[in-house]
Amino acid sequence: MKLSVIIPCYNEEVTIPIFYEEMQKIQSEIEYTFEYIFINDGSSDNTIEELRKLSSKHENVRYISFSRNFGKESALYAGLQASTGELVTVMDVDLQDPPELIPEMIDLIENKGFDCVTTRRENRDGEPAIRSFFAKKFYQLINKISDTKMTNGARDYRLMTRQVVDSILRLSESNRFSKGLFSWVGYKTTFLSFKNRERVAGQTSWSFWKLLKYAINGISDFSEAPLHIATWSGGFFSTLAGLGIVWIIIRKIISPEIAISGWSSIICLILFIGGIQLLCLGILGEYIGKIFVETKKRPIYIVKETEKDNPNK
C-alpha cells in the first residue's frame, strides 16, 4: 500500500529539509510506502534547489515545478493529479500540520470505515486577533448562505481514499476553493482536532488581504446569495421610489400651493441609489468574470520541471 503526501511550497527552502526529517520519523512507524510530491509554486528563493537535492538522494521524493506562481489551489490540484497512492494526504511544509496525526488518520480510514479524515484547529493561538475574528465570521456567513457546509478551523490537511481524490479531480474548474470542493464531494468524513502550531521556520505568504480575497472567492464559488442581494436591493429601492412618486402626486393634488423642495435630500438619495446600483453591477461583474475565465479553458497550471528533469541526478 502506498501513501501519497502532497506538499505545496512557495519560498520554503528553509522548511523543506526539516519537514522531510520529521516525516521520516512517522514513516518508520507505518507499514506504508511513502510517496512525496512537492509542488514548487513559482518560488523566488532556492526552493527548487532544495527539491532537486532531496529528490536526487531519495527515490520516493518527486516534485513538480511551475513556470510561475499559480497559487496554492493550483498546486493542490497538480499534486492530486500526480498522486498514485491508495491513500493521499495534503500537508503544509511548515509543520503547522502535525505529522504525528497520520497513524490515527490511517486507522480511522482502515478500521472505522471513513473515506476522509480532516483535521481542524481547536484554537487560533498565535494568530493576529483581526485575522481570527474575520475567519470566524467568514465561516458563520458561508454556512448561512451556502448549501455546502464548511467547518470552522478545518485545514487542507486531510487523508483521503483514492475514490475521494478521483471525485475531486473531476471538478476541474479554474476558480478553485478547495475547502468547499472537499466538502462538496461528500463521502463519510470525520474530524481530528489539534492545538494551533506556529511555523517551524520562515514567514507565511498569506497576508490579510490575500485571505480576504480568498474568502470572497469562496463565497462567490459556493453561494448565489450575493446575486439575490442585488435583486432584492433593486426591487426594494424601485418600490420605494414608486411610493415616493405616488406620494408627491397625491400631495400636489391635495395641496397645489405647497412647493416641492429639498434638493439636497434628493441629491443624497440619487447618490445613495446610484451607489447601490454600482454595488449590484460589481456583484454581477464578479460572477460574469468567473464565467469569462472558465470559458477560456486555460490550463490550471503549467509545469516547467519535474524530478525526471532533475539535473542533479
Rank of each mutant, 00 (worst) to 15 (best):
P128T: 05
G153Q: 12
A201V: 11
L51G: 14
L227M: 13
I30Y: 06
D156H: 10
G242P: 04
G262M: 02
R120Q: 02
S56K: 07
L108C: 04
K57L: 12
I219V: 12
L95F: 08
I102A: 09
L54W: 04
N11H: 05
L240H: 08
L243E: 15
T148Y: 01
D97N: 13
N175V: 06
L284C: 14
K290L: 03
W206E: 15
I249M: 11
T190A: 06
Y77G: 04
G242F: 05
L284Q: 14
E86F: 07
Y63W: 03
T119E: 02
A201G: 04
G235S: 13
I276H: 00
A135Y: 13
I300Y: 00
S205R: 03
T204G: 13
N143E: 02
G289W: 15
Y139M: 00
K188E: 01
W247F: 09
M160Q: 07
G282T: 15
T189E: 11
S44R: 04
T151Y: 09
W247M: 04
T47I: 13
L87S: 01
P98D: 00
H228G: 00
S233I: 10
K144Q: 02
I283V: 14
V293Q: 06
I300Q: 09
L3S: 12
K136P: 03
E100Y: 04
K144H: 03
R124A: 14
F34S: 11
I48M: 13
V117P: 08
T189D: 03
T148S: 06
D97Q: 05
I276E: 03
G180C: 02
I266L: 08
N175A: 10
A82K: 14
K290T: 10
S146A: 04
I168P: 09
M91G: 13
M91Q: 05
R124C: 11
L212E: 08
I250D: 08
K188T: 14
F182T: 10
N175L: 12
Y32V: 13
G71F: 07
G285W: 04
F34D: 12
Y63R: 11
Q203E: 15
S261A: 13
R68F: 10
S146W: 01
E294F: 10
D221V: 03
L3Y: 11
D221R: 14
L212G: 03
A135G: 08
N40A: 00
Y287R: 06
P226Q: 07
S207Q: 13
A78M: 06
K179H: 05
I250P: 05
D97K: 09
F237Y: 12
Y20V: 11
E173F: 10
G275Q: 00
D45F: 06
T84F: 10
L108P: 04
K112G: 08
L212T: 14
G85T: 02
S261F: 07
E305K: 10
K313G: 14
K304M: 10
E104T: 09
N111Y: 09
V93L: 07
P128S: 05
K149M: 07
T119M: 02
E31S: 15
C268A: 12
P128R: 00
S55R: 03
N60M: 02
I142R: 00
F194W: 08
A78C: 04
G186S: 07
L76S: 01
T151H: 09
I250F: 11
Q27N: 07
S207V: 11
R170D: 00
T119R: 01
